[in-house]
Simulated assay, not measured.
Amino acid sequence: MHIRPFDFSEADYQAYAGVREAAHPEAPLDIAGAQHLDRTRSSSDVMARFLVEQSGQVVGVLEYATPYYDPRPGALEVRYHLRPEAQALEGALWAFLLEQLTPYAPHELLAQVRENWPEYRFFLEQGFAEVERRWESVLDLDHFDPTPFVRPLPPGLVLRPLSELPWQEEGFQRALYQLEIELLADVPSAEPITPWPFEVWQARTLSDPNLLPEGFFLALQGEQLVGVTMLFKSHRPQTLRTGLTGVRQSHRRQGLALALKLRAAEFAKTYGVRYIRTSNHQTNRPMLAINEALGFVKEPAAVLLHKELQS
Rank of each mutant, 00 (worst) to 15 (best):
H2D: 13
I3C: 11
E10Q: 09
Q14G: 06
Q14H: 12
Y16H: 09
Y16C: 07
A17Y: 04
G18C: 08
H24Q: 14
H24S: 13
P25V: 01
E26H: 13
G33H: 06
G33N: 04
A34C: 10
L37W: 06
D38G: 03
D38T: 00
T40R: 00
S42F: 05
S42M: 07
S44Q: 14
D45R: 11
A48Y: 12
L51F: 04
V52D: 02
V52Y: 04
S55R: 08
D70N: 15
P73E: 04
L76S: 06
E77R: 15
H81C: 13
L82C: 13
R83Y: 06
R83S: 09
A86D: 00
L93T: 12
W94I: 04
A95H: 07
Q100H: 14
Q100M: 09
P103I: 00
L109Q: 02
A111I: 05
V113N: 05
E115W: 14
P118E: 11
F122R: 01
L124I: 08
L124Q: 11
R133I: 03
R134C: 10
V138E: 07
L139A: 06
F144M: 12
F144G: 09
T147H: 06
V150C: 12
L157P: 03
L159Y: 10
Q168F: 05
Q173T: 11
Q173D: 09
R174M: 05
A175I: 07
Q178A: 15
E182A: 15
L184H: 13
L184Y: 06
V187Y: 00
P188L: 04
P188A: 02
A190F: 09
A190Q: 08
A190S: 11
E191M: 09
I193D: 11
P195A: 05
P197C: 02
P197G: 01
F198V: 09
F198W: 07
V200D: 09
S207E: 08
D208V: 00
D208H: 03
L211N: 03
L212I: 02
P213C: 09
P213W: 11
E214V: 06
E214P: 04
F217E: 01
A219Y: 06
A219K: 05
Q221L: 14
G222K: 08
E223Q: 12
Q224K: 15
G227C: 10
V228P: 01
V228G: 02
T229S: 12
M230E: 14
L231H: 08
Q238R: 00
L240P: 05
T242N: 10
T242P: 01
G243A: 02
G246Q: 05
V247R: 03
S250M: 10
R252W: 03
L260K: 01
F267S: 04
G272L: 01
R274F: 04
R274D: 04
Y275L: 06
Y275R: 00
T278Q: 09
S279K: 09
S279Y: 12
N280Y: 03
N280A: 05
H281K: 11
H281L: 10
P286F: 01
M287H: 08
G295V: 02
F296Y: 13
F296V: 04
K298V: 01
E299H: 15
E299K: 15
E299R: 15
A301W: 12
V303M: 12
L304E: 08
Q310S: 12
S311W: 13
